[in-house]
Amino acid sequence: MHNENTQIVFISGKDSYAMDLFEIRPLNFLIKPLKEEEIVKIIKKVIELSAKSNHFFEYKIGRTQTKIPLKDILYFESSGKKVKIFTQDEVHEFYGKLSVIEQQLTNKDFIQIHKSYLVNYSHVIKYHYENVQISDNTVLPISQQQRKSVSDILLQRWREDKGNG
């Protein structure tokens, strides 16, 4: 169905089915008998994911207003007075400042890694001290000034994610 917003949790008495479900990409696979804390944890995760999927970044070029779902944005790149928005399929460009965008996206999973780059945490697949790799395999540099804070943020988030699922 190509619907990334629908969350599926499978419940079974046999764990042998779990590996067959990777293509479907369920949110989770629970084994009977169910435990209340597992169910509560899954419900919280569904609520968190659905809240994220309803957020958009809006920008304007001339008289045209455009909205892009935040979950689709890989990263923002600033060059001069222009900002490029990179998604998996296309690049959008408009006049703006990265500092203003960063303020708009506070608490929205975006991390300033460099004066020219604001990355979507959800699309960071690898982290090295000097750079991050995004889900489209783009490698972006982390400025010296940002290395400590980026490292702290990413390590904290990965610990949280590991604890949640």
Rank of each mutant, 00 (worst) to 15 (best):
L98D: 12
L74R: 13
Y75R: 14
V100L: 08
I111T: 06
E130R: 06
K45Q: 12
N137V: 10
Q112S: 09
E36H: 00
P141Y: 09
E38V: 01
Q65E: 10
F29M: 02
K44T: 07
E130G: 07
G80S: 04
Q65L: 07
Y75A: 00
D72W: 10
V46A: 03
V139P: 02
K115H: 07
N131D: 04
I134V: 12
E77N: 14
L98I: 05
E102Y: 03
I42S: 05
E77S: 12
K97S: 13
K52G: 03
H123I: 00
Y59H: 06
N137I: 14
Y129A: 09
T66I: 00
V46F: 08
H128V: 15
Q65C: 01
N28T: 08
P33D: 13
G80C: 04
Q103L: 03
K97R: 13
K84V: 07
T106W: 00
T106D: 15
K84G: 09
F57P: 08
L105V: 03
P26F: 07
S50A: 05
N137M: 14
Q65K: 11
I85R: 14
Q112Y: 04
A51Y: 03
K84P: 06
N28M: 05
I39Y: 10
F76R: 13
T87S: 13
G80Y: 05
D109L: 05
V40C: 08
K81Y: 15
V83G: 08
K32V: 12
Y121E: 10
I134Q: 14
S79A: 03
L34S: 03
T66K: 14
L34N: 01
D136A: 04
E93V: 00
H55P: 01
G80V: 02
P69F: 01
F86N: 07
K32E: 14
E36L: 06
V124K: 10
S122R: 12
K44C: 11
Q112I: 03
L30N: 01
K45A: 08
Y117A: 02
A51P: 01
K71Y: 11
H92F: 08
G80A: 09
N28F: 01
Q88T: 00
